[in-house]
């Protein structure tokens, strides 16, 4: 294992922020696994740290394939993480909206550019990512429909779902989009948590990445075969919005199966304590996303369902 300095940022009153890369094996730039660009992505940091631990062990046992190199960048935005901020610096810039970066631009663009320069030549790019809305997901691989996306490869992670969505203009500044633009097969891996560690789903993510690396011939590792992934288009998910604001009492969790009419949540009046609204399943399906905050605003999305076609 080699530890490289991927990028370094100086600050007036803090130790420099050094983005570190942990390199395993030698040869073709086979796969890059990249962790948090946002300061609240603690689960993603944990997953990457576990990837480093496992790959170190595998390398020690000679299980990295000859002529293949794997790079893990456990964290990009450690500065934000250490001060409890989500985005970069006082400007609050999302580094994942600054790709491919610019070495002459503002600080966040330089970080993105410096990091991208070191990771853009890998054949496979795996980003441990977070969604802009807080909530819980069923673990899945997310891809943008850029024309270069490859859902068949995404199936090899063996996670239950692969979600494909159409990119919006703002997505063209994300790592995933720019990786694909550089012909890296890019995957964003989402687990159920962001700002706290969930050991079970983190282990599932580590196993999924190891499974993918094994199936691509990059490592030798004994893993169970995982799921046969179900590929879904994001637009086909059934969104359930609430029609009133209040205290959210969720009754089902991500991954649960619900039937039409099943009671999914209640909105409680924050003054009088009664139930203002009951949210019921509009269709049979599997809960893909759940709102998890205790408060909810009118029209907020409480759930997203994968519509079940077959009973």
């Amino acid at each position: 294992m080699f530890i490289d300095e991927i990028y370094k940022v100086e600050a007036p009153y803090r130790e420099p922020m050094v983005v570190k890369g942990y390199r395993f094996g030698k040869g073709d730039k086979a796969a890059c696994i990249l962790g948090p660009m946002r300061g609240n992505e603690i689960q993603q940091l944990y997953i990457c740290s576990q990837m480093v631990r496992v790959l170190k062990e595998l390398e020690g046992n000679g299980c990295i394939s000859a002529g293949k190199e794997v790079l893990v960048v456990p964290v990009v935005n450690s500065y934000a993480m250490n001060v409890g901020k989500r985005f970069w610096g006082v400007e609050g810039v999302d580094i994942n909206r600054r790709f491919p970066g610019n070495s002459y631009g503002e600080t966040a663009a330089r970080i993105a550019g410096g990091v991208f320069e070191k990771i853009k030549d890998y054949s496979y790019g795996i980003q441990l990512a977070s969604f802009y809305m807080t909530g819980e997901f069923v673990p899945h691989i997310r891809m943008m429909e850029t024309g270069y996306q490859n859902a068949s490869l995404a199936n090899l992670f063996g996670l239950p779902y692969v979600v494909i969505r159409k990119p919006k203009p703002i997505d063209t500044k994300t790592l995933n989009y720019n990786w694909q633009d550089e012909m890296t097969a890019a995957f964003s891996l989402y687990t159920n948590k962001n700002s706290e560690v969930d050991e079970a789903s983190a282990n599932q993510a580590v196993a999924a990445v190891l499974r993918f690396l094994t199936r691509m011939g990059i490592i030798r590792y004994e893993s169970h075969s995982g799921y046969i992934s179900h590929v879904i288009m994001e637009d086909d998910l059934t969104n359930i919005h609430v029609t009133s604001g209040g205290i959210f009492r969720g009754l089902v969790r991500a991954g649960e199966d619900v039937r039409y009419g099943h009671k999914m949540a209640e909105i409680i009046d924050p003054y009088e304590g009664g139930v203002k609204e009951t949210i019921v399943a509009p269709t049979d399906g599997i809960v893909f996303f759940t709102h998890t905050e205790d408060l909810i605003t009118e029209n907020d999305m409480a759930y997203r369902l994968i519509h079940r076609l077959h009973a």
């Binding site: 604001g245 209040g246 924050p270 408060l295 605003t297 009118e298 029209n299």
Partner: peptide
């Protein structure tokens, strides 16, 4: 206009 969680509307 929408109802916020606690006794207020966003207008």
């Amino acid at each position: 206009s929408i109802e916020m969680p606690v006794g207020e509307r966003l207008i």
